[in-house]
Design a binder for these strands. Structure first.
Ligand code: MN
Ligand code: MN
Ligand code: ZN
Ligand code: ZN
Lengths: 178, 178
DNA sequence: ATCTTATTGATAATGATTATCGTTATCTAT
DNA sequence: ATAGATAACGATAATCATTATCAATAAGAT
């Protein structure tokens, strides 16, 4: 069962002086939409719950929630932050597969249970050795996608294919996300 | 022994069409200053090696080097990217342990057996599922170091988790983190 | 109901990164 | 060595996410 308004507010404890509609709306939205949500996602989805809410308020509220520890901010490196409601169990987490040839990024989340166990063990070992409290991780694999692999015939992009000079424009661009 | 100009250029292979002074300067600087370097660090340190170099060229070169796999980009979430040279030898391979409180980054290479298994198995699965040729990976764990953990031991209104995101708020004294 | 002031939101400002575009200089082929 | 094609450069303007201001609003206490 998902937490109701009263639960959410209670979870904020005494960390804020006034509980307002915008705060209720932002936290409520995040709590019922787990995943990696951008500020624009939130802004675009709050016309019903809190009409007229401003971007500034969303940013401020996210900061508050993050400091309180109710949500977590994740930076993918694409220039905009994502936020995620922090329940006890981790869900809807994904890693990245990045093509060095065309820059395409694939989000994959079909983990094996085995993989999750291994991550946990690593976390424990690191916590023990370095005295860290580990909260999250980022994992990305780099390589070449099928298209780029076929184009370069097993080799990495050559400067000039030794004869052809017109073709060979770099396809897609490096900031996609799927 | 650190790599000389010829080594650096060779390592770029045929992945760029022309080898220029700015590229030599940027890659050379990164190769002899291992660590986690910001764009401004590079810009400010290249007056000798390449006078008059422009920010634009630095950004473009860093993109090229990253796509080639010679350097690695690290996004702390404080609004500016950091870069790190990746030595050619396998021995110096390491992962990152990042403190969300003070921004400190720990390079660790004392992997547990589970971590090596995780990497190998995941690579196989991803190659099969998505048709990728996987060449490398970046793994980072996020959390709080011992110092920061002790500091935030209290549970009441902490005005600031003092960290990565507020680093920009103090334009006066930019403390170098490493 | 009144008062205090925490919070809001329209707006301007900041700062990192990217797009333009005319100029420069690297590389290849004479 | 020379010349030509054009990859790469760099000054500048443009984007884009995030912050700072500040007058107006409304939550919570009395
Ligand atoms: Mn993830
Ligand atoms: Mn490192
Ligand atoms: Zn590709
Ligand atoms: Zn710390």
């Amino acid at each position: 069962m998902r937490p109701g308004p009263a639960d959410l507010r209670r979870r904020m404890g005494g960390r804020c002086r006034r509980w307002t509609a915008p705060r209720e709306a932002v936290l409520g939205f995040l709590s019922r939409r787990p995943g990696h949500v951008s500020v624009k996602d939130i802004y675009g989805s709050l016309s019903g719950a809190c009409p007229g809410i401003g971007m500034t308020t969303i940013y401020r509220t996210l900061g508050l929630l993050e400091r309180t520890g109710v949500i977590q901010r994740i930076t993918l490196g694409d220039g905009q932050a994502r936020y995620e409601f922090k329940p006890a169990d981790r869900k809807s987490h994904h890693h990245h597969l990045i093509c060095l040839g065309c820059g395409k990024i694939i989000d994959y989340s079909d983990f094996v249970q085995e993989e999750l166990d291994l991550v946990r063990k690593t976390e424990e070992a690191l916590a023990r050795r370095h005295g860290f409290l580990i909260l999250d991780h980022n994992i990305e694999f780099l390589g070449f996608c099928g298209t780029c692999r076929a184009r370069s015939a097993g080799d990495l992009p050559r400067p000039v294919p030794a004869g052809v000079r017109s073709a060979r424009k770099r396809p897609g661009n490096q900031k996609e996300r799927s």
